[in-house]
Design a protein around this nucleic acid. Structure first.
Lengths: 219, 219
DNA sequence: ACAAAAGTGTTCGATATACACCCATGT
DNA sequence: ACATGGGTGTATATCGAACACTTTTGT
């Protein structure tokens, strides 16, 4: 029985949630778009296989990676029995700028509006999106889509892009402030003709402390 | 690469959350307790394999089954590379009374207090317990541990057993009542010397309606 | 009579939501 | 001057947590 890993690679591009897809060059589903992935080697863990594929097919390392679901129906791959462990990955906005530029067949597409995918990859992508939305609300995955420092406006745009709906600026800032997991920096950036915005960074230490006290949610 | 399914079978016995474990008769880990499981056949789906093992090793059918996580580190099985898809199952209290009585090596043990398990099954069991606790709060898995009709006292004991802490009776009843997914029956049962308790059943239709309106949470 | 579980409301604090204006900057 | 995003507070509704007594039955 052959085992593969497929990866749903999410990133924010132009403040839209997108996924990196690969156009298949060989049958089955030749010409169709599909999730990047490949076979698991005999001597590597499932996660190592996923990271290797990420580097080979998207040219990225050091990102957030989480196992999603395993599909293995007989007949899902016309070539024979294949069990696929699906992962999803989150890229920061800077990394996403260079990801997938090597492989000619790779392309970013909107996560909610994309062509029919090969195999059962539509289902996997839908499930990944659902999981990401849920995790956004009770974990800190949102920060994984941004660089180390960011403005509150950028952070809110991440949440809006993933959730797919607008959020109230004042409520969003109050909630983030109450969590106490953001450290303001003495730096300001400006993007376009507007008032400069203060930079923040995610404070993992404070987050761990809160989580251990049971104030926040487990991962 | 060989693929197996292992199943964490939960049930309430004596109002305690227990798991069904199997004592291994052959190396490796001979004599150790382990999760029931076995190899996936070439022509069956992962879930079908899990259901087959449930019937073979525990003698149960028609239960709640949900995929949990997939482990596949090289070296986790000394016999060679094995990728294991873990599931967890919920048995109703009546079914649990007969489960595992055929296989001599099967035994129910408390979910939170059990011997060291073979392979990495301790981790899998811990993860299953965590998942069950989380799902209890935003889904209706709690009902899967009870027969079709039940009293509110029994339902509360299910929640307390899974969560591992006592709940306030009035708050519990009010919350359940507000959800509007319980249908009272014109039947009463009595267990011991006390006032008879009204029977209820879970109303899946109302639940679906609420969920579709976004009032309840997605599965 | 008493033991044991069923049944029933109110108060309070915390949390989520709705909502509008001034500020700093580039053009 | 104006367009653009940054930054700030209050009022209200909703939800979760704490808390005690009466009822019905078997022994």
């Amino acid at each position: 029985m052959r085992v593969t890993v497929d990866i749903v690679i999410f990133a924010l591009r132009d403040w839209e949630l997108q996924v990196l897809l690969i156009q298949r060059g060989i049958p089955p589903f030749e010409g169709h778009w599909a999730l990047p992935g490949g076979f698991v080697h005999e001597d590597e863990s499932l996660e190592a296989a996923a990271r290797r594929e990420l580097e080979e097919e998207a040219g990225v390392r050091d990102l957030y990676l989480e196992q999603l679901y395993t599909v293995g129906d007989p007949g899902r791959d016309p070539r024979g029995r294949v069990v696929t462990v699906a992962y999803y990955a989150l890229l920061t906005t800077e990394v996403a700028l260079v990801a997938g530029t090597d492989a000619g067949a790779a392309r970013w597409m909107p996560a909610r509006k994309h062509p029919r995918l090969a195999f059962d990859h539509d289902r996997i992508l839908g499930y990944a999106l659902e999981r990401l939305i849920n995790k956004l609300e009770y974990t800190t995955v949102g920060f994984k889509l941004l660089p180390k420092t960011f403005t509150l406006g950028q952070l809110q745009r991440v949440y809006e892009a993933v959730l797919g709906r607008p959020l109230d600026k004042r409520n969003f800032r109050r909630k983030m402030g109450l969590l106490g997991i953001l450290t303001p920096l003495d730096e300001y950036v400006q993007d376009g003709p507007s008032r400069p915005a203060q930079l923040y960074r995610f404070s993992a230490k404070r987050f761990e402390r809160l989580r251990d006290k049971g104030i926040l949610f487990p991962f």
